[in-house]
Structure formats: C-alpha cells, structure tokens
C-alpha cells in the first residue's frame, strides 16, 4: 500500500485543532484521527499506521483497516492530501 501525502503546511495542535494556513480553513479531529494524521505527516505507510493503531487502541484489525481508509477518504474530501 502507498503512503498518503498530507499538505505539508497543515498545523495540528495537541488539542486536535487543525489550521491550514494556505486556505485559512480550520478543522477539529478526535484522538484517533490525530494519531493517524501525525503518522501520515511523518510519511508512514498506510499498513504501518494501521498496525500502530491496533497496537495502541482497543480495536479489531478489520475495523482499523476500514476506518483508516475511510479517514483518508475524509482527508481527500477536504483537500487535505496532496494529490500526486
């Protein structure tokens, strides 16, 4: 699986508050969402993120897999990913 490029300028606070300086848009994200976002920003592979999510949280692998894909879909919907 490939990695997803997150807009490099996206600022994510510890509170789960997101600010995209290029557009001025703000977002809120929950704990698991922040967990995934941070790892995407670090350039981690999708599969690696899913594994670390399963290690850290009480979640079934099949749910983690589906939810990470869905979350990346949400990021794409908000144009927070750099399409390459």
């Amino acid at each position: 699986m490939s990695s997803t490029q997150i807009s490099t300028s996206l600022a994510v606070s510890e509170n789960g508050f997101l600010f995209l300086p290029t557009t001025g848009e703000t977002f809120t994200v929950n704990e698991t969402g922040r967990f995934i976002l941070r790892r995407l920003q670090e350039g981690r592979e999708q599969q690696e993120i899913i594994s670390s999510l399963i290690d850290e949280f009480d979640v079934e692998p099949v749910d983690a897999q589906r939810d990470v894909l869905d979350f990346i879909g949400q990021l794409r919907q908000y144009h927070l990913t750099d399409t390459q």
């Binding site: 606070s13 509170n15 789960g16 508050f17 600010f19 703000t26 809120t28």
Partner: peptide
C-alpha cells in the same frame, strides 16, 4: 490570536 478560537472550539 488563533489560540483563543482554538480554546473555544476545542474546550
């Protein structure tokens, strides 16, 4: 500052 807005939206 954006911090005030963040405080209201997050907390």
């Amino acid at each position: 500052d954006i911090a005030q807005f963040e405080s209201l939206t997050v907390h």
